[in-house]
Amino acid sequence: MTAEQVALLPGAGGPPRATVNKIIPFSCVDGPGNRTAVFLQGCNFDCRYCHNPETIQTCVHCGACVPYCKPGALSIMAGRVQYDIKKCVLCDECFHHCPHGSSPRTREMTPAQVMDEVRRNLPFIRGVTVSGGECTRWRDFLVGFLTLAKAEGLGTLLDSNGSHDFSADSELIAVTDGVMLDVKAWTPEDHVRVTGWDNALVRKNLRWLAEQHKLPEVRTVIVPELFDCEQTVRNVCEVLWETGNLNTRYKIICYRPMGVREVYKGLKSPEQAELQRLAGIARGYGLTDVVII
């Protein structure tokens, strides 16, 4: 192992690291304009409709995936699963066979290493978006990475489930232009049913980020049988209206079974008419940028 690799091992000290699931050089769906999107591994929520469940857990290096890797991008060395990005053909066999809801297709990276990959996309991008998993679980990494991105003149957005108390983290907020927030349900009961977690902090973040005008986008995935969608949309819109954020984009996202775990695949997609109805309600509050995805 090289000195650099040793420095990356857990507990080795040095700069903060994150487990990076994927870096998309040009993304047109992770905020305004062209952005490099960085996906970090691991999420504290367990949304039933999660369409990339392999990003929820971190790899325990059990090696169960290795035999399924036909191009030989995976191997075991010193008890850890090694991933060779150059050999990978993105067939997804590895995480489809992961018994732990994770993916071996990740890299431990420092802020500077991620920035090196972002830098090759200049000058075509206006910013970076860090997503997940839940990116705020790598809070120290975020502060480091977003500071570097800012220094290059890039915009910085986070994609978050709202489980991190942004109002109490001035250091992170100082280098974050905005948070694109998922509001998955409005009542705590509904929220627990969707995600397994309470949402007091999500609601607090919604209002606080709106008040700071650091809320460029809110998303709600519509699954009528799982939670009260109209109530959620109405409450989100009320907060946006009360805080003067009528230009915040509200994405009404159609639930689709693609990528969803077998046990939850029975959930039904909403009708287009229902999505239109919810979007109409949002526009009724004066929201100017409601998008059905």
Binding site: V29, P32, N34, P123, F124, I125, R126, I293
Partner: peptide, 15 residues
């Protein structure tokens, strides 16, 4: 779907 023409603008500007 994503209504993001700014994406193309950024590529033009970069070029």
């Amino acid at each position: 779907v994503h209504k993001n023409p700014q994406y193309v603008l950024d590529i033009i500007r970069g070029g």
